[in-house]
């Protein structure tokens, strides 16, 4: 199963193995990673699952959809070049080992 490492805002590293196809948001909330809310349930509608993707993995992700682009402008913590919504990133072998950092606030 692809491995994902979440780095919480306080620096705590949380490695989690996710079944392929699960979103990084689901993997975080189900496993109790602090700092990802995902209050809309993963429909790209709330911008509370904002993460900063490690630069080494950024190019391996599909680019954000038009909707995700709009929502990234609504994040609570500042949007950076490596900002993504974790509900839109699906675990798959291509991104095995991905590291994402969590922002200070989500809402």
């Amino acid at each position: 199963m692809p491995k994902v490492t979440y780095i919480e805002f306080d620096g705590t590293e949380r490695p989690v193995e996710l079944p392929a196809g699960w979103s990084l948001m689901q993997g975080a909330t189900l496993n109790g990673v602090d700092g990802i809310e995902g209050e809309c349930g993963g429909s790209c509608g709330c911008a509370t699952c904002h993460v900063y993707v490690d630069e080494a993995f950024l190019d391996k992700l599909d680019p954000p959809s038009e909707t995700e682009e709009e929502m990234l402008d609504c994040t609570s913590s500042p949007r950076e070049a490596n900002s993504r919504l974790s509900c839109q990133i699906k675990a798959d072998p291509r991104i095995d080992g991905i590291i994402v950092r969590l922002p200070e606030t989500q809402s």
Partner: peptide, 9 residues
């Protein structure tokens, strides 16, 4: 309707 950014704002 299909304008999530409006909703958040």
């Amino acid at each position: 309707v299909n304008r999530p950014a409006d909703h958040i704002l």
